[in-house]
Design a binder for these strands. Structure first.
Lengths: 91, 91
DNA sequence: TTTATTTATCGAAATATTTAAATAAATCAA
DNA sequence: TTGATTTATTTAAATATTTCGATAAATAAA
């Protein structure tokens, strides 16, 4: 992983709301719906959408349409690649 | 590690210049001086100083004064703690 | 078909971050 | 002591991010 990609992933992770979303994805066992986040996050719906978009754009999560809902799931391999990059920084 | 701390570390890592600094710290085997970064980064000296400060404030690196130079070294344990947090996000 | 529900987008305001010029502080070297 | 070198701080401008109201789009339910 190059620095530009690591920068983007770090940026996507650099927000408490987005980290909370990822924790909720885990809790839900990859079955998180947007609506569920309204209860967890103290944010307006467009803001939640904006944070989800950042995680999707950076491929940290994937989205799948299910009727009028959208289901989100974590891309473990992206986290693994990022962890490898971080290991590579260690002296 | 709680979300607030992980957010701060992510933020500190969310910049290509700061990631380059960390790569240089590794290259130098924990003997990086501020002056050396002038050649690597295309930034004015106060900007480099500002980035170093963010890494120091978040305890990602430590600084040690040596005459009129300052030597920087990586705090491996912080990276390790952060990696553990990331592992905990995985489903 | 009409209405309600869920998610996405646009636009604008508020806030945060990045950058560098000017300058200060500390130390070394002559 | 004087001048050069290295790092830090202050201040301000430029840029980026976060947030939300309004609204659109898609689908389900009545």
């Amino acid at each position: 992983m190059d620095i530009k990609r690591a920068e983007k992933i770090s940026k996507a992770l650099a927000d408490a709301n987005r980290l909370t979303i990822l924790k909720e994805v885990k809790k839900s066992k990859d079955c998180l719906y947007c609506v569920d986040l309204n209860e967890t996050l103290d944010l307006a719906q467009p803001s939640i959408c904006h944070h989800l978009k950042q995680l999707i754009d950076n491929e940290i999560i994937s989205s799948e349409k299910e009727g009028r809902n959208v289901k989100y799931s974590l891309n473990n391999y992206v986290i693994d690649d990022y962890i490898k990059f971080l290991e590579g920084l260690k002296v």
